[in-house]
Design a protein around this nucleic acid. Structure first.
Lengths: 191, 191
DNA sequence: ACGGTTGATGAGACCAAGTCCCATCACTCT
DNA sequence: AGAGTGATGGGACTTGGTCTCATCAACCGT
């Protein structure tokens, strides 16, 4: 059965999310996920490097979009503007179907330390691309690191709001970044 | 042999770092680490929840110190000042022996995705305690998140400099936080 | 000195994640 | 039809991680 059925990857992701939600991430075996998708363990690991990645697919695409968004920003613009363009750029991947699964996905990740690890690394990856992109534009080291962290924070905030409210991701990303930047600029000195 | 020898945990950490450096993290088995320490696999997992944690011990202590550092800051002080106190507070754990192993440890972590994941989660954990501590002080949500991220960034920067230069951790942590805060305050708007 | 208790360890069975290798089947092209 | 291609099935194998039970040294009270 199921052999050569299209979208094996999609089927695996759906099956995994369903099972994780029903019985928890740790109580769900890879073989079980594959079975529900009409496939086998071998095929699962052909599509995903490990069990976690079935929940974190598409990161490479986001990284590319972020890098492109920064690189495509006029050299005259500031670092924050470049990050804003990056956040807007990734909006194209935030589709309705992703939004539908978002809350379940977040709940599963929040309930498991192994998945939180992967999520943290994913965010660190975003931060890294942003920082590297800014360094290429000549932004000083510390400023690049600061803006990268603030950008990722804005991304997380915007993602949460987008899951709740829907609509165009850019419409939540821009205000989120502005709020974060405003909070940063308003800080009093530490001495 | 080696039964009841003191500091089994220490011996395991040293053996692990040695073996990871010699032959890589992935080519080193838990049984091998335990053997070099004169112990067994069972005992290894009694001291560390998993293979990675042998490189990340002491996080709980840091988290406690951070929380205490923030809580012990006068309510009149700003968020940045509380974070500064937290960074100074963790300085007591940065001993000479830790500094001696630091570079090797960083190299091993950098070379392995699994370990980078754990490291990223560790940093996210720090960020979380800081943020929670600031929220308890009445700092607004966004500002707390911003300052927490900046604090962790300063922590990473300070740790790198401390590994190079040595001395009192507080003497590198304070300037690092000031630089980060200054870079954040100097940002131009995103519009 | 003796026996019981405690606490860390040893030993081994066991499960699941992840790797490898090879056979198989559907589809395509010539 | 026959060969090639690419995704899949299947099973052996390694290793991280869990669990249970036995063991042994130190301590403690009588």
């Amino acid at each position: 059965m199921g052999r050569w059925e299209p979208e094996a990857r999609e089927r695996l992701m759906v099956a995994a999310l369903d099972l994780f939600g029903e019985q928890g991430y740790e109580n769900t075996g890879v073989a079980q996920i594959a079975e529900r998708a009409g496939l086998t363990k071998s095929t699962f690991f052909r599509h995903f490097r490990d069990k976690r990645e079935v929940l974190f697919g598409g990161q490479d695409e986001l990284v590319s979009l972020i890098a492109a968004g920064i690189e495509g920003t006029p050299a005259s613009a500031g670092a924050l503007k470049a990050v804003e363009r990056a956040l807007v750029a990734i909006g194209v991947t935030f589709t309705d179907s992703r939004r539908a699964n978002g809350p379940r996905r977040l709940a599963v990740i929040a309930a498991n330390a192994e998945l939180r690890e992967r999520d943290a690394l994913k965010m660190a990856g975003f931060s890294g691309v942003i920082k590297d992109g800014l360094l290429l534009r000549g932004v000083p080291e510390i400023e690049a690191a600061v803006v990268a962290e603030l950008g990722v924070l804005a991304l997380r905030i915007a993602y949460g709001r987008w899951l709740e409210a829907g609509g165009d991701f850019a419409d939540v990303a821009r205000p989120a970044l502005e709020e974060v930047a405003a909070a940063a600029a308003a800080l009093e000195g530490a001495e």
